[in-house]
Structure formats: C-alpha cells, structure tokens
C-alpha cells in the first residue's frame, strides 16, 4: 500500500501552559488503512488531529500528504481530506439541512446535481432522510453527528480524520456510522484515522492502533496485539444474586474469573474467547441478575499508563 500521510518528528509545545503536547511524534498512514489513535486525556491526540488538519502549526517536524508539505498546499490538501470533530459542526444551523449541505458542497466546488445525489444516498444510509427539510438546531445529538458525518463525506475525501466522532451518540446511530465508514473504506479506499474513548469505535473501525502518552508514541501495532497487551478483549460481568447458596456455588465454580466481591455480588473479568464457557456455567445457577459491561477504554489506558 502507498503511503498517504507522513508525520515526521512532529513537536508542539503550548507555551502558555508550558506543556509539550507532542514530542517528536512520527508515524505513517497508508492508503486504505484504518488507524485508531489513542491515549489518555491530554496525551496529544487532538493536537495531532489539529496539526493533521492544518488548524495548528507544529513547532518542528514535517507533515506530508502524498510527499508534499500540507502547510504549503493548505487549500488543495483540505479538499482531499475530511475532518470531523465530535460535538462540533461545520453546517449552518438555521437553514434547512439540505441547504446546509448544498453550501458545503459548493465550498468544495461540487456540482449541485452531485451534491443532491450524495446527500440523498448518505441520508438514506444513516437514516436521516426525513430530516433534510428541517434545521440542524432542532436535531438531537445523534442526528447532528450523523449530519456532520454526511457533510464530512460529501467531497469523497481520500483520508478521514475523526476526532471523537461518536461522543454522546446512541448505539444504533453508532453502528450505522460504523457500517458506512467501513463501506467507504472498502469501496473507495478512504483511509481513516480515528480518536475515541469508546472501545466499540476501536473494535469496529481499527486495524491498527497507535498509542500516545505524554506526547510520545508508546505503541504502534495491529489491533489483535493491542487487545492482548491492554486487555481490551475483557468484559466486566457483574452477577447479582438473591440467593446465598447460589452465590456460594457460583463463587467456587467461577473462582478463576472473580475480580471482586461485594456482598452477594460477584464482579468477573472475562476475556472474549472465554465468554461461551462462562455463559454455559451461568445456565446452571438460579436467582440472579447479570450485567455485562464493555471495558472503558479511558480506564484501561489510565491504568496501563499509571502502572
């Protein structure tokens, strides 16, 4: 695969707060690649996205797109990428959504016919077709986010930079977004770089993970290796028993998975591949409630980095 973007020894210091946000960060993004760019809060993720989208300028280092400096071809470069910042919109809020898309399409120099065709297609895919005659200010957060994604895709970007795109979005909307993004990646070869605190985003979209902490890259590898090293494939399961005998029985039989006990509640940590075996055992117990939680990525990263 051809290299699309090169981030070469990029540093950025915030002088007012005396923070070194990026300290010689280097990585490459290839065509068709899907990268999750992760790190704890304040690690430099958003700074990277802002530099990649020419919003911020680095103090040193180079950022190349097709081997050309992005800051020397800013407007041309911005036509080739799509940028989405979670909870922020580039669409006008008081006019009808379809007009807001028309304006955005005109800014990218697209013919009106093409804009309408694409808007209709994406709106159907993301289930917001019924909103085209309404105004963005009347939308729910999920509807706004899906509209913003359509706006980001209108000009068929070669690369997408998605900074926490699903923040505050419900699970159904998130899966609609994942499906569309995977489809675009597959059919058009659009590269994706995503930052998120949501495990589901990473599981669904990332093939490769770059982990950043205190402005330095601390991990760069495939998603399976990342899962193994950072325990992402584990789920937190809580069993709430109403019967003490059943609680004791479960405690013994699931002893290998017990992480914590609170009264008659068992807190278990179960890896994805062990889940079927545990579920088989659970069938034999009675009088309990089960709660399965995805691991919180921020928590995993916080623990990993503080260890």
């Amino acid at each position: 695969m051809t290299v699309l973007m090169e981030f070469i020894k990029v540093s950025k210091k915030y002088r007012k707060s005396d923070t070194l946000a990026l300290d010689g960060v280097s990585f490459e993004l290839k065509e068709k690649e899907r990268i999750a760019y992760l790190g704890p809060n304040g690690s430099g993720k958003t700074t990277t996205c802002k530099i990649m989208s020419t919003v911020l300028y680095p103090d040193s280092g180079k950022v190349l797109f097709h081997r050309q400096n992005i800051f020397k071809m800013r407007k041309e470069y911005l036509k080739k990428i799509g940028v989405m910042f979670g909870n922020k919109t580039k669409l006008m809020e008081n006019i009808k959504l379809q007009d807001a898309f028309l304006l955005l399409g005109h800014i990218y120099g697209l013919p009106e016919k093409d804009i309408k065709k694409k808007v209709f297609y994406y709106a159907e895919r993301l289930n917001v077709g019924h909103l085209l005659d309404k105004r963005l200010r009347e939308f729910s957060l999920g509807e706004r986010t899906k509209s913003e994604l359509i706006g980001t895709l209108l000009h068929d970007p070669e690369m997408l930079i998605l900074d926490e795109p699903t923040i505050g979005v419900d699970i159904i909307s998130r899966y609609e977004m994942y499906e569309l993004l995977k489809d675009i990646n597959k059919t058009r070869g659009t590269s994706i770089l995503i930052t998120s605190h949501n495990v589901e985003d990473i599981k669904e979209l990332a093939e490769r993970v770059i982990l950043i902490n205190k402005g330095k890259v601390v991990f760069d590898g495939g998603f399976p290796e990342f899962k193994r090293r950072f325990g992402v494939e584990e789920k937190d399961v809580v069993l709430r028993f109403r019967n003490y005998t059943e609680f004791e029985k479960a405690k013994q039989e699931l002893s290998g998975f017990v992480k914590r006990i609170e009264g008659v509640n068992l807190h278990l940590a179960i890896r994805d591949e062990e889940m079927p075996r545990v579920l088989n055992k659970l069938v034999s117990f009675q009088d309990y409630e089960i709660l399965i939680k995805e691991k919180d990525l921020s928590e995993i990263l916080r623990r990993s980095f503080s260890a």
């Binding site: 989208s53 020419t54 919003v55 041309e76 911005l78 036509k79 940028v83 910042f85 922020k88 919109t89």
Partner: peptide, 13 residues
C-alpha cells in the same frame, strides 16, 4: 469553545 476549527478545515480563505 473550539468551534472555529470546523471553519478552519474548510478549503477557503
């Protein structure tokens, strides 16, 4: 608020 970023990423002057 950071909303200016959404305008700065548009291919315009």
């Amino acid at each position: 608020k950071g909303t200016i970023t959404t305008e700065l990423v548009l291919p315009v002057d």
